[in-house]
Computed example of a mutant assay.
Amino acid sequence: MTGLDVEVVIERGGFRLDVALATSRREVIAVMGPSGAGKSTLLAAIAGLVRPDSGHVRVREVEVSGQVQVTPAKRGVVLLGQEPRLFPHMDARTNVAFGLRARGVDRAAARERADEWLLRVGLGGVGQLRPAVLSGGQQQRVALARALATEPAALLLDEPLTSLDPGTADGIRVVLGEQLAAADTTTIIVTHDVVDAAALASRLLIIEDGRIAQDAAVREVFRAPASPFAATVAGVNRVVGTARAGVWAGGDPVVHIAAGDAASRFALSHEGAPVAAVFAPSAVRLTRADEPWAPTRGSAQPGEWTTHVERLEQTPSGVRVHTRAPSVAADLTPDAVAALSLRPGTPVRLVVAGADVRVHAAE
């Protein structure tokens, strides 16, 4: 059975969201995209908080938006954002039981099920405590228990871990993974954290400028990103050029990048077509170029070219050096950056081994 069937067009102040999405009943989907791409607007449309200009939303094959409009409370959809939004005057047990009571469950049964859910999210014994004495992570767990206790047809999570410290977020991520695996619900997680996508979802949607730029299995998006943003998410370089004699060619001046055997065979079968070369920043060997500097011309070996540093970016493990022609990132240690005296404008030579390069078709 279909979990969600969504085709919505929303236009607001010059921005247009135009998205079509269908899910299976127990599927977990991650949604990523730049700020302002339309991710939260999509969730709001599914939840009934924003009315689309056209299209429809169907939940388990029942239309809740389109020819008919069903109120948010009756859609079988729960939206949980960054803020837990617990009732401050209610204890944790009563907060979790609130949704059940609203659906007609009697008081005693609702309180019993609330205690069961608090136990399932790791909060057994805190049912009598009010939100004010709970930590941020505990409050978010209560909110998750409240959301899942009603057994929604669809659970929409809008960056629920963003405001939490990494340790707390990891703990809730584990709870989410356990509970979503057992829940009979469709889950859509909007996130900026690649760990959420990798750990929780089987499918990843990339939304850019109000449209779906890529919709594939999480691993496929990471292996063959279809846009610069998707490549950033996957943590790889993605440079688009043309297949020429089994190697990638592109840039101005022209640079050639060799690929592994399988990728070369792919490139040969796509001669003259747009292709994307994908490789990790850690696979790029960077040295200073000899002076006087000039960009590489066609005589260079495939996988070697000269360019210049565009900018330096600190990372948790060192320094990412961004270069031009083509735009490529290389990961170095701080010591290596200092030894090479790298700064914007420094001429550098890049080398990428063919075995580290994948090639796939580019739109």
Rank of each mutant, 00 (worst) to 15 (best):
G3S: 10
R16Q: 00
A22M: 11
G36H: 04
S40N: 08
G48F: 08
L49H: 05
G55T: 03
V62L: 13
Q69E: 10
V70C: 10
V70W: 04
T71Y: 08
L79F: 14
L80K: 07
G81E: 02
Q82T: 06
P84G: 12
L86Q: 05
H89W: 14
L100H: 13
A110W: 08
W117R: 13
L118T: 03
V121L: 11
L123N: 07
P131T: 04
V133L: 15
V133C: 13
Q138W: 06
A143K: 07
A147C: 15
T150M: 12
A154G: 06
L161D: 01
D165W: 06
A169R: 15
V175F: 13
G177A: 15
E178H: 15
A181E: 07
I188E: 02
I188L: 15
V190H: 01
D193W: 03
V194A: 09
A199K: 10
L200G: 03
R219H: 12
E220H: 02
V221Q: 00
V221A: 00
R244G: 03
G246R: 08
W248Q: 03
H256K: 12
S264Y: 01
R265N: 08
F266S: 03
S269N: 13
H270N: 14
A276Y: 00
A277T: 00
P281Q: 01
S282M: 05
V284I: 10
T287M: 10
E291M: 14
P292Q: 08
P295Q: 07
G298N: 06
G298K: 05
G298H: 07
S299H: 13
A300Q: 03
P302C: 12
W305D: 00
G318A: 09
V319L: 13
H322D: 00
S327R: 09
L332E: 00
L332N: 00
A336V: 12
L342M: 08
L342I: 04
G345H: 07
H360D: 04
A361F: 03
